[in-house]
Amino acid sequence: MREWRYLLNGSSLALDAETCIGCGSCVEVCPHDVFLVEAGKARIRDRALCMECGACSRNCPVGALGVSSGVGCAAAIIAGKRGLASSGCGCSTDSSSSCC
């Protein structure tokens, strides 16, 4: 299966091995198979596959994962810069872009 890589992917992903209890929640929610659990601890298998969606950190029961998440959508970022949308992706409401 193809593995997709993008600029700066996964640069903000941080895993605190001390805190991790190896429950595998991150493995269960990650859409790009970034994690694996080895010897009772989660490990980042391939950081460059991470799109920083935030699913893992939101579902980590012990707060061992941190990532600065947001939409990787150019139209939303441009709209945000022009003050059209306060934050995140406002594209579905103005339908100016196909994202979301």
Binding site: Y6, L7, H32, E52, G72, C73, A74, C100
Partner: peptide, 23 residues
């Protein structure tokens, strides 16, 4: 660049950098 919004693997940091340099 616009297609980042429809793609399934682009992160925000990278897209923001592309907008900043690309536009």
């Amino acid at each position: 660049l616009n297609f980042t919004g429809s793609s399934t693997y682009t992160c925000q940091t990278g897209t923001a950098r592309e907008v900043k340099l690309g536009i």
